[in-house]
Design a protein around this nucleic acid. Structure first.
Lengths: 240, 240
DNA sequence: CCGTCGGTTCGGCCGGCACCGAAGCGATGC
DNA sequence: GCATCGCTTCGGTGCCGGCCGAACCGACGG
Protein backbone atom coordinates (compact mmCIF):
# COMPACT_ATOMS: atom_id res chain seq x y z
CA UNK A 1 0.00 0.00 0.00
CA UNK A 2 1.47 3.32 -1.03
CA UNK A 3 -0.51 6.06 0.68
CA UNK A 4 0.99 9.04 -1.08
CA UNK A 5 2.53 7.45 -4.14
CA UNK A 6 -0.73 6.43 -5.76
CA UNK A 7 -0.37 7.08 -9.45
CA UNK A 8 -2.34 9.97 -10.76
CA UNK A 9 -4.12 7.60 -13.15
CA UNK A 10 -7.24 7.32 -11.06
CA UNK A 11 -8.16 10.88 -11.80
CA UNK A 12 -7.51 10.55 -15.52
CA UNK A 13 -9.71 7.47 -15.62
CA UNK A 14 -12.39 9.41 -13.79
CA UNK A 15 -12.07 12.28 -16.23
CA UNK A 16 -12.65 9.94 -19.16
CA UNK A 17 -15.58 8.27 -17.44
CA UNK A 18 -17.11 11.63 -16.60
CA UNK A 19 -17.42 12.35 -20.31
CA UNK A 20 -19.80 9.42 -20.64
CA UNK A 21 -21.43 9.76 -17.25
CA UNK A 22 -24.31 11.86 -18.48
CA UNK A 23 -27.39 10.50 -20.20
CA UNK A 24 -27.32 13.07 -22.96
CA UNK A 25 -23.64 12.70 -23.78
CA UNK A 26 -23.90 8.92 -23.66
CA UNK A 27 -26.84 9.08 -26.04
CA UNK A 28 -24.83 11.29 -28.38
CA UNK A 29 -21.93 8.87 -28.42
CA UNK A 30 -24.06 5.82 -29.03
CA UNK A 31 -25.79 7.57 -31.92
CA UNK A 32 -22.40 8.44 -33.39
CA UNK A 33 -21.26 4.85 -32.92
CA UNK A 34 -23.28 4.18 -36.07
CA UNK A 35 -20.31 5.68 -37.90
CA UNK A 36 -22.06 8.61 -39.61
CA UNK A 37 -21.47 12.28 -38.85
CA UNK A 38 -24.39 14.17 -37.30
CA UNK A 39 -25.08 17.86 -37.01
CA UNK A 40 -25.43 19.47 -33.62
CA UNK A 41 -29.15 20.05 -33.92
CA UNK A 42 -29.83 16.55 -35.15
CA UNK A 43 -28.25 15.26 -31.99
CA UNK A 44 -30.09 17.78 -29.84
CA UNK A 45 -33.45 16.77 -31.25
CA UNK A 46 -32.52 13.08 -31.03
CA UNK A 47 -31.63 13.32 -27.36
CA UNK A 48 -34.45 15.71 -26.54
CA UNK A 49 -32.46 18.67 -25.23
CA UNK A 50 -32.21 22.35 -26.17
CA UNK A 51 -29.65 23.33 -28.82
CA UNK A 52 -27.71 25.34 -26.27
CA UNK A 53 -27.41 22.29 -24.07
CA UNK A 54 -26.20 20.21 -26.99
CA UNK A 55 -23.51 22.77 -27.74
CA UNK A 56 -22.09 22.51 -24.25
CA UNK A 57 -22.04 18.73 -24.37
CA UNK A 58 -20.38 18.65 -27.78
CA UNK A 59 -17.72 21.06 -26.59
CA UNK A 60 -16.92 18.79 -23.70
CA UNK A 61 -16.81 15.66 -25.83
CA UNK A 62 -14.60 17.31 -28.43
CA UNK A 63 -12.32 18.83 -25.86
CA UNK A 64 -12.08 15.44 -24.19
CA UNK A 65 -10.93 13.88 -27.45
CA UNK A 66 -13.87 11.59 -28.06
CA UNK A 67 -15.32 13.56 -30.96
CA UNK A 68 -14.02 15.66 -33.82
CA UNK A 69 -15.91 18.37 -35.65
CA UNK A 70 -16.05 19.62 -39.23
CA UNK A 71 -17.73 22.93 -39.78
CA UNK A 72 -19.46 23.42 -43.09
CA UNK A 73 -21.25 26.72 -43.58
CA UNK A 74 -23.61 27.11 -40.70
CA UNK A 75 -23.53 23.42 -39.87
CA UNK A 76 -21.36 21.73 -37.30
CA UNK A 77 -20.80 18.12 -38.12
CA UNK A 78 -19.41 15.87 -35.43
CA UNK A 79 -18.27 12.27 -35.43
CA UNK A 80 -16.22 9.90 -33.35
CA UNK A 81 -12.60 10.96 -33.28
CA UNK A 82 -11.14 7.60 -34.35
CA UNK A 83 -11.70 3.85 -34.58
CA UNK A 84 -10.05 3.81 -31.18
CA UNK A 85 -12.89 5.73 -29.64
CA UNK A 86 -15.37 3.47 -31.37
CA UNK A 87 -13.69 0.48 -29.82
CA UNK A 88 -13.82 2.11 -26.42
CA UNK A 89 -17.56 2.55 -26.75
CA UNK A 90 -18.04 -0.99 -28.02
CA UNK A 91 -16.07 -2.30 -25.07
CA UNK A 92 -18.25 -0.38 -22.67
CA UNK A 93 -21.57 -1.30 -24.20
CA UNK A 94 -20.63 -4.95 -24.30
CA UNK A 95 -20.39 -4.84 -20.52
CA UNK A 96 -23.83 -3.35 -20.01
CA UNK A 97 -26.73 -5.15 -18.42
CA UNK A 98 -28.76 -7.49 -20.59
CA UNK A 99 -30.42 -5.69 -23.50
CA UNK A 100 -33.90 -5.84 -21.93
CA UNK A 101 -35.78 -7.54 -24.74
CA UNK A 102 -39.34 -6.16 -24.59
CA UNK A 103 -39.62 -2.86 -26.42
CA UNK A 104 -42.68 -0.98 -25.26
CA UNK A 105 -44.37 0.81 -28.12
CA UNK A 106 -44.82 -0.71 -31.55
CA UNK A 107 -42.55 1.94 -33.04
CA UNK A 108 -39.93 1.23 -30.43
CA UNK A 109 -40.29 -2.49 -30.91
CA UNK A 110 -39.86 -2.40 -34.66
CA UNK A 111 -37.01 0.09 -34.44
CA UNK A 112 -35.06 -1.99 -31.94
CA UNK A 113 -35.91 -5.16 -33.86
CA UNK A 114 -34.30 -3.62 -36.92
CA UNK A 115 -31.21 -2.74 -34.86
CA UNK A 116 -31.03 -6.25 -33.46
CA UNK A 117 -31.27 -7.68 -36.97
CA UNK A 118 -28.36 -5.72 -38.38
CA UNK A 119 -26.52 -2.49 -37.75
CA UNK A 120 -23.19 -0.82 -38.18
CA UNK A 121 -20.79 -0.62 -35.29
CA UNK A 122 -18.72 2.36 -36.45
CA UNK A 123 -17.03 0.67 -39.40
CA UNK A 124 -18.08 -2.96 -39.24
CA UNK A 125 -21.31 -4.96 -39.08
CA UNK A 126 -23.02 -6.02 -35.86
CA UNK A 127 -26.32 -7.45 -34.74
CA UNK A 128 -27.60 -10.80 -35.94
CA UNK A 129 -26.15 -10.07 -39.37
CA UNK A 130 -22.66 -9.44 -38.02
CA UNK A 131 -22.72 -12.52 -35.83
CA UNK A 132 -24.08 -14.67 -38.63
CA UNK A 133 -21.32 -13.60 -41.02
CA UNK A 134 -18.72 -14.26 -38.36
CA UNK A 135 -20.13 -17.70 -37.64
CA UNK A 136 -20.31 -18.54 -41.32
CA UNK A 137 -16.70 -17.49 -41.81
CA UNK A 138 -15.72 -19.65 -38.87
CA UNK A 139 -17.61 -22.65 -40.26
CA UNK A 140 -15.92 -22.08 -43.61
CA UNK A 141 -12.49 -22.15 -41.98
CA UNK A 142 -11.76 -18.52 -42.77
CA UNK A 143 -11.70 -17.54 -39.11
CA UNK A 144 -10.75 -19.44 -35.99
CA UNK A 145 -12.01 -18.76 -32.48
CA UNK A 146 -10.72 -21.86 -30.72
CA UNK A 147 -7.42 -20.51 -29.41
CA UNK A 148 -8.14 -16.81 -29.70
CA UNK A 149 -9.60 -14.81 -32.54
CA UNK A 150 -7.76 -14.63 -35.84
CA UNK A 151 -8.09 -15.09 -39.56
CA UNK A 152 -6.76 -18.34 -40.94
CA UNK A 153 -4.48 -18.44 -43.96
CA UNK A 154 -7.55 -19.34 -46.00
CA UNK A 155 -9.30 -16.34 -44.54
CA UNK A 156 -6.48 -14.05 -45.54
CA UNK A 157 -6.57 -15.44 -49.07
CA UNK A 158 -10.35 -15.03 -49.15
CA UNK A 159 -10.12 -11.36 -48.26
CA UNK A 160 -7.49 -10.60 -50.89
CA UNK A 161 -8.94 -12.90 -53.52
CA UNK A 162 -12.70 -12.68 -53.18
CA UNK A 163 -13.05 -9.29 -51.59
CA UNK A 164 -10.14 -7.72 -53.49
CA UNK A 165 -8.55 -6.27 -50.40
CA UNK A 166 -4.85 -5.62 -50.89
CA UNK A 167 -2.35 -6.92 -48.38
CA UNK A 168 -1.09 -3.41 -47.78
CA UNK A 169 -4.59 -2.20 -47.04
CA UNK A 170 -4.87 -4.82 -44.32
CA UNK A 171 -1.46 -4.33 -42.88
CA UNK A 172 -0.10 -0.84 -42.73
CA UNK A 173 -2.41 0.55 -40.10
CA UNK A 174 -1.85 0.29 -36.40
CA UNK A 175 -5.14 -1.49 -35.81
CA UNK A 176 -5.29 -5.27 -35.44
CA UNK A 177 -6.27 -7.14 -38.59
CA UNK A 178 -9.01 -9.06 -36.81
CA UNK A 179 -10.46 -8.73 -33.36
CA UNK A 180 -13.64 -9.81 -31.63
CA UNK A 181 -16.30 -7.28 -30.77
CA UNK A 182 -18.86 -8.58 -28.31
CA UNK A 183 -22.32 -7.93 -29.61
CA UNK A 184 -24.60 -6.05 -27.29
CA UNK A 185 -27.84 -7.68 -28.41
CA UNK A 186 -26.54 -11.11 -29.30
CA UNK A 187 -23.98 -11.51 -26.50
CA UNK A 188 -21.73 -13.23 -29.01
CA UNK A 189 -18.50 -12.10 -30.68
CA UNK A 190 -18.42 -10.79 -34.21
CA UNK A 191 -15.63 -9.73 -36.54
CA UNK A 192 -14.12 -6.29 -36.02
CA UNK A 193 -10.74 -4.73 -36.76
CA UNK A 194 -9.49 -3.92 -40.23
CA UNK A 195 -10.91 -7.12 -41.71
CA UNK A 196 -14.33 -6.36 -40.25
CA UNK A 197 -14.23 -2.89 -41.71
CA UNK A 198 -13.25 -4.16 -45.15
CA UNK A 199 -16.00 -6.75 -45.18
CA UNK A 200 -18.53 -4.10 -44.24
CA UNK A 201 -17.23 -1.66 -46.86
CA UNK A 202 -17.34 -4.30 -49.55
CA UNK A 203 -20.89 -5.34 -48.72
CA UNK A 204 -22.00 -1.72 -48.75
CA UNK A 205 -20.20 -0.99 -52.03
CA UNK A 206 -21.82 -3.97 -53.74
CA UNK A 207 -25.20 -2.83 -52.37
CA UNK A 208 -25.59 -6.18 -50.61
CA UNK A 209 -26.47 -4.35 -47.45
CA UNK A 210 -27.91 -0.84 -47.24
CA UNK A 211 -28.64 1.61 -44.47
CA UNK A 212 -32.22 1.98 -43.29
CA UNK A 213 -32.89 5.70 -43.01
CA UNK A 214 -30.24 7.73 -41.30
CA UNK A 215 -29.56 5.68 -38.17
CA UNK A 216 -27.34 2.69 -37.47
CA UNK A 217 -29.72 0.03 -38.75
CA UNK A 218 -29.00 -1.80 -42.00
CA UNK A 219 -30.86 -4.39 -44.05
CA UNK A 220 -29.75 -7.09 -46.47
CA UNK A 221 -30.85 -6.52 -50.04
CA UNK A 222 -32.19 -9.37 -52.21
CA UNK A 223 -28.91 -9.34 -54.12
CA UNK A 224 -27.13 -9.49 -50.77
CA UNK A 225 -29.08 -12.56 -49.67
CA UNK A 226 -28.03 -14.37 -52.80
CA UNK A 227 -24.42 -13.26 -52.53
CA UNK A 228 -24.05 -14.18 -48.86
CA UNK A 229 -25.65 -17.54 -49.47
CA UNK A 230 -23.29 -18.08 -52.38
CA UNK A 231 -20.09 -16.83 -50.75
CA UNK A 232 -20.52 -18.08 -47.21
CA UNK A 233 -23.44 -20.46 -47.27
CA UNK A 234 -25.59 -18.25 -45.11
CA UNK A 235 -29.23 -19.28 -45.00
CA UNK A 236 -31.31 -16.24 -46.02
CA UNK A 237 -33.80 -17.12 -43.28
CA UNK A 238 -31.12 -16.62 -40.63
CA UNK A 239 -30.72 -12.96 -41.50
CA UNK A 240 -34.25 -12.15 -42.64
CA UNK B 1 -33.30 9.76 -37.00
CA UNK B 2 -35.79 8.45 -34.48
CA UNK B 3 -36.63 11.28 -32.08
CA UNK B 4 -38.62 9.35 -29.52
CA UNK B 5 -37.53 5.81 -30.23
CA UNK B 6 -33.95 6.21 -29.10
CA UNK B 7 -33.05 3.07 -27.24
CA UNK B 8 -32.83 3.43 -23.53
CA UNK B 9 -29.21 2.25 -23.68
CA UNK B 10 -27.75 5.72 -23.44
CA UNK B 11 -28.87 6.02 -19.86
CA UNK B 12 -27.56 2.60 -18.89
CA UNK B 13 -24.20 3.43 -20.41
CA UNK B 14 -24.20 6.67 -18.45
CA UNK B 15 -25.07 4.83 -15.27
CA UNK B 16 -22.08 2.53 -15.72
CA UNK B 17 -19.78 5.43 -16.53
CA UNK B 18 -20.99 7.36 -13.50
CA UNK B 19 -19.62 4.61 -11.27
CA UNK B 20 -16.12 5.41 -12.52
CA UNK B 21 -16.63 9.14 -12.94
CA UNK B 22 -15.29 10.03 -9.52
CA UNK B 23 -11.62 10.27 -8.62
CA UNK B 24 -11.98 8.27 -5.45
CA UNK B 25 -14.00 5.44 -6.97
CA UNK B 26 -11.69 5.28 -9.97
CA UNK B 27 -8.69 5.06 -7.67
CA UNK B 28 -10.37 2.24 -5.77
CA UNK B 29 -11.00 0.27 -8.93
CA UNK B 30 -7.50 0.68 -10.27
CA UNK B 31 -6.07 -0.47 -6.97
CA UNK B 32 -8.31 -3.53 -7.08
CA UNK B 33 -7.26 -4.19 -10.66
CA UNK B 34 -4.13 -5.65 -9.11
CA UNK B 35 -6.28 -8.68 -8.36
CA UNK B 36 -5.99 -8.73 -4.56
CA UNK B 37 -8.85 -8.05 -2.14
CA UNK B 38 -8.54 -4.91 -0.01
CA UNK B 39 -10.29 -3.88 3.17
CA UNK B 40 -12.40 -0.76 3.26
CA UNK B 41 -9.99 1.21 5.40
CA UNK B 42 -6.99 0.23 3.32
CA UNK B 43 -8.71 1.73 0.35
CA UNK B 44 -9.78 4.80 2.29
CA UNK B 45 -6.24 5.51 3.42
CA UNK B 46 -4.87 4.77 -0.04
CA UNK B 47 -7.22 7.24 -1.70
CA UNK B 48 -6.96 9.77 1.08
CA UNK B 49 -10.62 10.00 2.15
CA UNK B 50 -12.48 9.47 5.42
CA UNK B 51 -13.68 5.94 6.21
CA UNK B 52 -17.28 7.08 6.01
CA UNK B 53 -16.72 8.38 2.52
CA UNK B 54 -15.13 5.13 1.49
CA UNK B 55 -18.14 3.20 2.76
CA UNK B 56 -20.48 5.18 0.55
CA UNK B 57 -18.31 4.67 -2.51
CA UNK B 58 -17.97 0.95 -1.89
CA UNK B 59 -21.72 0.63 -1.53
CA UNK B 60 -22.22 2.27 -4.87
CA UNK B 61 -19.60 0.15 -6.59
CA UNK B 62 -20.98 -3.07 -5.13
CA UNK B 63 -24.54 -2.14 -5.88
CA UNK B 64 -23.48 -1.28 -9.41
CA UNK B 65 -22.02 -4.74 -9.85
CA UNK B 66 -18.37 -3.79 -10.23
CA UNK B 67 -17.25 -5.10 -6.85
CA UNK B 68 -18.15 -7.93 -4.50
CA UNK B 69 -17.59 -8.03 -0.77
CA UNK B 70 -16.68 -10.69 1.77
CA UNK B 71 -17.16 -9.80 5.39
CA UNK B 72 -14.80 -11.38 7.88
CA UNK B 73 -15.19 -10.35 11.48
CA UNK B 74 -14.94 -6.62 11.60
CA UNK B 75 -13.28 -6.45 8.21
CA UNK B 76 -14.94 -5.82 4.89
CA UNK B 77 -12.93 -7.21 2.06
CA UNK B 78 -13.79 -6.09 -1.45
CA UNK B 79 -12.52 -7.16 -4.84
CA UNK B 80 -13.49 -6.90 -8.47
CA UNK B 81 -16.68 -8.81 -9.16
CA UNK B 82 -15.35 -10.87 -12.07
CA UNK B 83 -12.74 -11.13 -14.81
CA UNK B 84 -15.30 -9.34 -16.90
CA UNK B 85 -15.06 -6.25 -14.77
CA UNK B 86 -11.29 -6.47 -14.88
CA UNK B 87 -11.42 -6.51 -18.64
CA UNK B 88 -13.71 -3.50 -18.63
CA UNK B 89 -11.18 -1.57 -16.57
CA UNK B 90 -8.28 -2.70 -18.74
CA UNK B 91 -10.17 -1.58 -21.82
CA UNK B 92 -10.74 1.82 -20.31
CA UNK B 93 -7.23 2.39 -19.05
CA UNK B 94 -5.75 1.37 -22.38
CA UNK B 95 -7.59 4.30 -23.92
CA UNK B 96 -6.25 6.86 -21.49
CA UNK B 97 -3.87 9.63 -22.41
CA UNK B 98 -0.18 8.81 -22.54
CA UNK B 99 1.16 7.63 -19.20
CA UNK B 100 3.04 10.91 -18.54
CA UNK B 101 6.53 9.55 -17.99
CA UNK B 102 8.18 11.87 -15.43
CA UNK B 103 7.25 10.88 -11.89
CA UNK B 104 7.87 13.77 -9.54
CA UNK B 105 9.22 12.57 -6.21
CA UNK B 106 11.84 9.88 -5.90
CA UNK B 107 9.38 7.66 -4.08
CA UNK B 108 6.83 8.18 -6.83
CA UNK B 109 9.43 7.58 -9.51
CA UNK B 110 10.65 4.29 -8.12
CA UNK B 111 7.14 3.10 -7.37
CA UNK B 112 5.90 3.82 -10.88
CA UNK B 113 9.11 2.40 -12.34
CA UNK B 114 8.38 -0.85 -10.54
CA UNK B 115 4.86 -0.85 -11.93
CA UNK B 116 6.14 -0.19 -15.44
CA UNK B 117 8.63 -3.04 -15.09
CA UNK B 118 6.06 -5.66 -14.14
CA UNK B 119 2.64 -5.86 -12.54
CA UNK B 120 -0.47 -7.96 -12.38
CA UNK B 121 -3.51 -6.96 -14.39
CA UNK B 122 -6.15 -8.79 -12.35
CA UNK B 123 -5.14 -12.33 -13.25
CA UNK B 124 -2.40 -11.96 -15.84
CA UNK B 125 0.93 -10.20 -16.18
CA UNK B 126 1.39 -6.73 -17.63
CA UNK B 127 4.06 -4.06 -17.86
CA UNK B 128 7.37 -4.65 -19.58
CA UNK B 129 7.40 -8.20 -18.20
CA UNK B 130 4.00 -9.05 -19.69
CA UNK B 131 4.87 -7.56 -23.06
CA UNK B 132 8.23 -9.29 -23.11
CA UNK B 133 6.71 -12.69 -22.42
CA UNK B 134 4.14 -12.10 -25.13
CA UNK B 135 6.78 -11.08 -27.63
CA UNK B 136 8.94 -14.06 -26.76
CA UNK B 137 6.00 -16.42 -27.21
CA UNK B 138 5.32 -14.82 -30.56
CA UNK B 139 8.94 -15.19 -31.66
CA UNK B 140 8.86 -18.81 -30.54
CA UNK B 141 5.80 -19.47 -32.70
CA UNK B 142 3.54 -20.15 -29.73
CA UNK B 143 1.40 -17.11 -30.42
CA UNK B 144 0.50 -15.34 -33.63
CA UNK B 145 -0.49 -11.71 -33.97
CA UNK B 146 -0.34 -11.36 -37.73
CA UNK B 147 -3.98 -12.04 -38.57
CA UNK B 148 -5.50 -11.47 -35.16
CA UNK B 149 -4.42 -12.70 -31.75
CA UNK B 150 -4.43 -16.41 -31.05
CA UNK B 151 -2.34 -19.29 -29.77
CA UNK B 152 -0.84 -21.52 -32.41
CA UNK B 153 -1.12 -25.30 -32.23
CA UNK B 154 2.42 -25.28 -30.85
CA UNK B 155 1.33 -22.77 -28.26
CA UNK B 156 -1.56 -24.94 -27.19
CA UNK B 157 0.78 -27.90 -26.85
CA UNK B 158 3.25 -25.77 -24.89
CA UNK B 159 0.61 -24.78 -22.38
CA UNK B 160 -0.57 -28.32 -21.80
CA UNK B 161 2.88 -29.88 -21.99
CA UNK B 162 5.27 -27.44 -20.37
CA UNK B 163 2.89 -25.56 -18.11
CA UNK B 164 0.74 -28.62 -17.27
CA UNK B 165 -2.52 -26.85 -18.01
CA UNK B 166 -5.27 -29.30 -18.83
CA UNK B 167 -7.35 -28.84 -21.96
CA UNK B 168 -10.50 -28.70 -19.86
CA UNK B 169 -9.05 -25.95 -17.71
CA UNK B 170 -8.49 -23.87 -20.82
CA UNK B 171 -11.79 -24.63 -22.43
CA UNK B 172 -14.81 -24.90 -20.25
CA UNK B 173 -15.08 -21.31 -19.20
CA UNK B 174 -16.89 -18.63 -21.13
CA UNK B 175 -13.80 -16.48 -21.44
CA UNK B 176 -11.69 -16.51 -24.60
CA UNK B 177 -8.60 -18.69 -24.46
CA UNK B 178 -6.33 -15.89 -25.60
CA UNK B 179 -6.96 -12.22 -26.10
CA UNK B 180 -4.84 -9.09 -26.35
CA UNK B 181 -4.78 -6.60 -23.51
CA UNK B 182 -3.28 -3.29 -24.51
CA UNK B 183 -0.65 -2.28 -22.00
CA UNK B 184 -1.10 1.11 -20.44
CA UNK B 185 2.58 1.89 -19.96
CA UNK B 186 4.00 0.06 -22.96
CA UNK B 187 1.24 0.82 -25.48
CA UNK B 188 1.70 -2.69 -26.81
CA UNK B 189 -0.49 -5.77 -26.57
CA UNK B 190 0.18 -8.54 -24.10
CA UNK B 191 -1.41 -11.91 -23.47
CA UNK B 192 -4.66 -12.01 -21.51
CA UNK B 193 -7.61 -14.38 -21.37
CA UNK B 194 -7.48 -17.84 -19.83
CA UNK B 195 -4.03 -18.55 -21.24
CA UNK B 196 -2.67 -15.32 -19.79
CA UNK B 197 -4.11 -16.18 -16.41
CA UNK B 198 -2.62 -19.67 -16.45
CA UNK B 199 0.82 -18.41 -17.41
CA UNK B 200 0.68 -15.91 -14.56
CA UNK B 201 -0.52 -18.51 -12.06
CA UNK B 202 2.21 -20.92 -13.09
CA UNK B 203 4.96 -18.32 -12.77
CA UNK B 204 3.69 -17.32 -9.35
CA UNK B 205 3.38 -20.92 -8.19
CA UNK B 206 6.95 -21.70 -9.26
CA UNK B 207 8.10 -18.53 -7.48
CA UNK B 208 9.53 -17.24 -10.73
CA UNK B 209 7.77 -13.98 -10.16
CA UNK B 210 6.69 -12.57 -6.80
CA UNK B 211 4.64 -9.66 -5.62
CA UNK B 212 6.44 -6.62 -4.28
CA UNK B 213 4.70 -5.62 -1.09
CA UNK B 214 0.95 -5.51 -1.23
CA UNK B 215 0.32 -3.59 -4.43
CA UNK B 216 0.16 -4.60 -8.08
CA UNK B 217 3.89 -4.56 -8.74
CA UNK B 218 5.79 -7.81 -9.23
CA UNK B 219 9.43 -8.69 -9.74
CA UNK B 220 11.22 -11.58 -11.42
CA UNK B 221 13.20 -13.79 -9.06
CA UNK B 222 16.67 -15.08 -9.96
CA UNK B 223 15.15 -18.50 -10.54
CA UNK B 224 12.58 -16.82 -12.74
CA UNK B 225 15.23 -15.15 -14.87
CA UNK B 226 16.86 -18.47 -15.52
CA UNK B 227 13.55 -20.21 -16.22
CA UNK B 228 12.27 -17.55 -18.60
CA UNK B 229 15.57 -17.50 -20.44
CA UNK B 230 15.47 -21.27 -20.67
CA UNK B 231 11.80 -21.65 -21.62
CA UNK B 232 11.32 -18.67 -23.90
CA UNK B 233 14.77 -17.31 -24.61
CA UNK B 234 14.10 -14.07 -22.79
CA UNK B 235 17.22 -12.00 -22.15
CA UNK B 236 17.37 -11.30 -18.40
CA UNK B 237 18.47 -7.75 -19.19
CA UNK B 238 15.18 -7.07 -20.95
CA UNK B 239 13.19 -7.62 -17.80
CA UNK B 240 15.68 -6.42 -15.22
C1' DC C 1 -31.36 43.59 -48.06
C1' DC C 2 -34.14 41.28 -44.83
C1' DG C 3 -36.05 36.89 -42.87
C1' DT C 4 -34.80 32.41 -41.52
C1' DC C 5 -32.03 29.05 -39.68
C1' DG C 6 -28.11 26.63 -37.24
C1' DG C 7 -25.27 27.47 -33.68
C1' DT C 8 -23.28 29.93 -29.59
C1' DT C 9 -22.98 32.70 -25.28
C1' DC C 10 -24.63 34.07 -20.99
C1' DG C 11 -27.16 34.27 -16.73
C1' DG C 12 -29.79 31.86 -13.52
C1' DC C 13 -31.92 27.91 -11.46
C1' DC C 14 -31.78 23.55 -9.38
C1' DG C 15 -30.61 18.85 -8.10
C1' DG C 16 -27.23 15.59 -7.11
C1' DC C 17 -23.38 14.16 -4.81
C1' DA C 18 -18.67 14.04 -2.62
C1' DC C 19 -17.02 15.16 1.59
C1' DC C 20 -16.55 15.39 6.59
C1' DG C 21 -17.28 14.76 11.72
C1' DA C 22 -19.87 12.86 15.37
C1' DA C 23 -22.26 9.22 17.16
C1' DG C 24 -23.32 4.37 17.12
C1' DC C 25 -22.41 -0.70 16.64
C1' DG C 26 -20.41 -5.20 16.51
C1' DA C 27 -16.11 -7.77 16.76
C1' DT C 28 -11.63 -8.31 18.91
C1' DG C 29 -8.16 -8.34 22.40
C1' DC C 30 -6.26 -7.44 26.88
C1' DG D 1 -15.15 -6.31 31.96
C1' DC D 2 -13.47 -2.25 29.21
C1' DA D 3 -10.70 -0.10 25.49
C1' DT D 4 -9.85 -0.38 20.80
C1' DC D 5 -10.69 -0.97 16.16
C1' DG D 6 -13.13 -1.35 11.64
C1' DC D 7 -17.04 0.03 9.74
C1' DT D 8 -21.60 2.32 9.24
C1' DT D 9 -25.28 5.85 9.69
C1' DC D 10 -26.71 10.39 9.73
C1' DG D 11 -26.89 15.30 9.45
C1' DG D 12 -24.92 19.31 7.21
C1' DT D 13 -22.22 21.84 3.85
C1' DG D 14 -20.61 23.26 -0.42
C1' DC D 15 -19.76 22.70 -5.16
C1' DC D 16 -20.20 21.07 -9.66
C1' DG D 17 -22.77 20.64 -13.69
C1' DG D 18 -27.00 19.92 -16.49
C1' DC D 19 -30.77 22.44 -18.05
C1' DC D 20 -33.30 26.21 -20.10
C1' DG D 21 -34.57 30.75 -22.35
C1' DA D 22 -33.14 35.03 -24.26
C1' DA D 23 -30.10 37.47 -26.85
C1' DC D 24 -26.70 37.30 -30.31
C1' DC D 25 -23.96 36.01 -34.51
C1' DG D 26 -22.91 34.32 -39.01
C1' DA D 27 -24.48 31.79 -43.13
C1' DC D 28 -27.80 31.19 -46.47
C1' DG D 29 -31.84 32.19 -49.60
C1' DG D 30 -35.14 34.90 -51.75
Amino acid sequence: MTPTAQDRSGSTLARLARLLADDTRATFCLALLGGRAWTASELARYAGVAPSTATEHLNRLIHGGLLVEARQGRHRYVQLASPDVAQLLEDLTSHLDPPARPGRSLRGATASAALARGRTCYDHLAGRLGVEITDAMTRAGLLQQRTGFALTEDGLAWLTGVLKVTEADLRDTRRPVARACLDWTERRPHLAGVAGARVCRHLMAERWVARIGSGRAVRVTPAGEAALSDLLGIDPAAIA
